[in-house]
Nucleic acid binder design. Structure first.
Lengths: 212, 212
DNA sequence: GCCGACGGTGAGCGGGCGCTTAGTGTGGCC
DNA sequence: GGCCACACTAAGCGCCCGCTCACCGTCGGC
């Protein structure tokens, strides 16, 4: 098992950067509701109800429903980028770093599926300014993965015809885990992470595709 | 270029199985609107407006807004399944059939991105009965791809550790094209199809990964 | 013991939603 | 020409949405 992020899976919800307590409860309730039914199908009454509060309480801590989505999206993207950066900047061969990046990124998308779903699929519900901010973070995500693949190609470890296209495909593969993964399914986040790391090493033509 | 479905790309909208004409115009308008803003964020007034009709006209041809989504999803899944079946049942090695299946499936998801988006991402907006019908179609899609991979493994053409997991990943990769592909982007549907066919052959460990 | 700050509530506003209904213009058939 | 069938519209019903506002209980500071 890889080590960049040891406890990405599981069900603990580390929203501890959100204060005060009532604001965090509302945000966690919104994450559940948005992930279950989608942003547009979720009502502010539903969010407040899940947090055990009246509908009006939401507006003490957040200006609008969209601000809630923005905060969730921002925190989620920061976390995803942090996971990739940790893997990209560790020491080791490009093959090891890529396997680590993919397996920890996938573990996050599977284990924190609710957050990941919102982060990846509700971008269009944000207004122009918030969307631009998130899109910038996504470009950094792309750059981290592309960097590892470029390193591997330069070192002769990988055999890739189209670096940008392959980067896109690798990220796409990982992200889509949030769409299909189910906690009731037959696989754990760790198993999917290991399977995907192997598949991605094959995609980049890594020599001797061993396990990290 | 592969040949299973020669004109999957492009912008022609072959909804000709939908009659009468007014019903088709409404359905095409709904496809555009759902793909742009999502099912829940689309209003019946918007759909009718795009079709050049009054809001009430929608209800002459469709019982509810959900029936529109159901019809779109059903036709889209039928088409996707047809594309995969055509590739799976042609003659040739497992490698050729898999490359053909992936490249034509991807061309459809890229070239008919609006339909594919609705088909893949609005499943949860359907009621239980309609959803069950669509889920059954998806299982057939999975079975087609898994069948090709199993054939390749049995023939010694492929080297796959986890057939079901790899099938899942291959389909996931293709489907997610509908999320990120843009007609304004640097790639044509044909280019993405060719790139993805190559990547998938690498994922299944096909010997001598040539071009079909 | 009084007071202001603050987190919270109940009631409700303006508006847009999905959908319905009564009525209208038009074209085909005798 | 008379008539009906049918595709379509104008108007609007009942509902629930995001959000607001007047008010209230609690708690630390003096």
């Amino acid at each position: 098992m890889s080590t960049a992020e040891e406890t990405t899976g599981g069900e603990a919800e580390p929203w501890d950067e959100v204060t005060p307590d009532a604001a965090r409860r509302l945000l966690v309730a919104a994450v559940e509701a948005f992930a279950e039914r989608g942003y547009h199908a979720t009502t502010t009454r539903d969010i407040a109800g899940r947090a055990g509060m009246s509908p009006a309480a939401l507006y003490i801590h957040y200006k609008t429903k969209e601000e809630l989505l923005h905060r969730i999206s921002r925190i989620g993207h920061d976390k995803a980028l942090d996971i990739l950066r940790t893997a990209a900047q560790r020491e080791g061969s490009a093959k090891e770093r890529l396997a680590d990046a993919v397996s920890s990124f996938v573990r996050w998308h599977a284990g924190r599926r609710t957050t990941a779903r919102i982060v990846q699929y509700e971008l269009d519900a944000l207004g122009p300014d918030a969307r631009a901010e998130i899109v910038a973070l996504r470009r950094q995500v792309d750059a981290e993965v592309r960097g590892i693949i470029e390193d591997g190609v330069a070192a002769g470890e990988f055999d890739v015809l189209d670096v940008q296209g392959t980067t896109l495909a690798v990220l796409s593969l990982c992200i889509d885990v949030a769409r299909w993964f189910s906690v009731n399914g037959p696989r754990t986040p760790e198993e999917v992470g290991a399977l995907y790391a192997d598949l991605v090493l094959r995609m980049v033509g890594a020599k001797q595709p061993d396990r990290t």
